[in-house]
Write a protein that binds this DNA or RNA. Sequence first.
DNA 1: CTCCGAACCTAAACCGGTTTAGAGGAGCAG
DNA 2: CTGCTCCTCTAAACCGGTTTAGGTTCGGAG
Lengths: 347, 347
Amino acid sequence: MPTERPTIADVAERAGVSKGLVSFALNDRPGVSPQTRERILAAARDLGWQPSLRARALSVNRAFALGLVITRDPEIITGDPFYPSFIAGVERELAPAGQALVLSVVPDEEAELAAYRKLVEDRRVDGIFITDLRHDDARIALADELGVPAVTLGRPEGASPFPAVSMDDRAGIEAAVDHLVGLGHRSIAHVAGPARMLHGSRRRKAFEDAMARAGLRATMIVETDFRAADGARATRDLLARQEDPTAIVYANDPMAIAGLGVAQRSGLRVPEELSITGFDGSDVAEHIFPALSTVATDAVSWGAVAARVLLQEIAGEEPGDTELPPARFIPRESTAASPEPIPRAER
Amino acid sequence: MPTERPTIADVAERAGVSKGLVSFALNDRPGVSPQTRERILAAARDLGWQPSLRARALSVNRAFALGLVITRDPEIITGDPFYPSFIAGVERELAPAGQALVLSVVPDEEAELAAYRKLVEDRRVDGIFITDLRHDDARIALADELGVPAVTLGRPEGASPFPAVSMDDRAGIEAAVDHLVGLGHRSIAHVAGPARMLHGSRRRKAFEDAMARAGLRATMIVETDFRAADGARATRDLLARQEDPTAIVYANDPMAIAGLGVAQRSGLRVPEELSITGFDGSDVAEHIFPALSTVATDAVSWGAVAARVLLQEIAGEEPGDTELPPARFIPRESTAASPEPIPRAER
DNA sequence: CTCCGAACCTAAACCGGTTTAGAGGAGCAG
DNA sequence: CTGCTCCTCTAAACCGGTTTAGGTTCGGAG
């Protein structure tokens, strides 16, 4: 049976000083003579004293934890390559700082707001991550109302009192389009994410801009919910159209992989007859056949930097916005020269 | 500016009673007259009082949180379909109970033990989940030493003081083998998980048993680290052997998808020339071509039940071991009748 | 020799709850 | 009327730290 864990009072007694002085010594604060400090530290060591995070939390009014809420239908959360890496990056910063991550996974936006509110009102966390920004994102106002430090992944549309950590995903999409145009494609479609999600519409805009710059019309765009099933549906839609795309730019990898499945199933050869690009650099995308050309984002760094910024903010500094290296396009096997434009009927 | 949040003392003053009585009233404990109780509740409501979790944590010596440590190389964590669903299930139980989940993601086993220890010694959590059991798992002893309630996913090998929540994954593997044998396959290989992970070796054993029962020899088994890249490597190994498998049973979906890629790349038609099965029922597996026959596990329920058991344990009950419905095999398109056994040379 | 300030330290308040010991009053039995 | 019990409630201790106000001691300046 583990004997009662020693408290600061035990240390004080053993060192023959007052509680307060022990606290000073242990926190490296001035006003303690070197000998006494040494004696106190020795006593603490002898007793195997460890600070009680709870007592500290109560007296200094800090949680020593950060909060993240992920909004995903639990049945379909699988397959998203972003969060696990992001969290690993966050952890990389938090662990050495003695902070922890409190995670909530909720099914919808209503529950999301409630979860953030609860986390903050319970004072479980000192700051929150706001990921997957949406248009008119209610979380910005909520965090502001709650007076909690926050960091946003990407810059929100309106004014935001919080620092943003952004990664230019436009560059990756543009590079993908440029790559395809360079291969002779002129009929390029885009399977977009939800328009209400900022990165969904931003990638779509990037697609449109890149097409325009290439002198092409971006007419074939299908909106999805980012899920593999919807990526498959969107691909079927596109392949059923009059004007047949010779290339499809997907807003994420799971949809691209599902789209590849649809194309292959309908007898289309990839990349000979249809080129495909993904987004997010998931592990498995590299190993399918043909290997998926995709846009890699460094979610690990994103998490690490966001965590660092949030900690700075909590510490009272005023970190500015941060721009991470842009997402970069990785050509692999799923993209190739555009086929001769042969009317579908003759195929 | 949010005015200072009211404390229990404010409520007491407004209701004209002592702090202690307020605490009694708010916790529905006997010894408070109905009128007074009503007055106290009204006062709390008027002031918008909310309990301070921190103060409560300190006085009742509880964290109101559970801990989970995930061990994965951050660079390759992506693609694992299990944890996101598992966590969603956990959350489903925790949120209504007013509990939170503290998550750590660490790169290796050493850091894993340190993370658990830190979580518990900091008293950040009241109980821990032990997932991905290994042989001679040091975490059992650690949890025992720390005296922290725990729940294991699956039954560990040795004696364990903790309740286990298990899902029979053997059944799924056996069903997969039976399915393949029924299709005429006799040369079936297995791409296994790490032998030191319990579910890795258990699935392998299930494979061997099922093969034996069918009167077949389980000679073609390759061990991997569960990652897509290693699944691809294992597949190349198998396809390079003398005795050519007509079917491969993979220990998880990412490896199966990668293996499919390898097969297709080498010109093998799936399922006509090679049948493939996966494990875990990831979202995307359903949408590739051919759609992956796989074994579905209900990770969401697993999380929910594990959380419930852990909460019971913390509440002082002594929940027994739980057995979830077994994993079940879902035949799709990646499995078909065995090809005629034609020596490779003639193909 | 006196006075002042710095250095070191103690005692006590504080964070915001829970819990215990016991006070006071009402109701009831004897 | 007395004594006992039960009910309701208060005061204070407690959880384990941090922080503040203030008390000693000592050396050096005047």
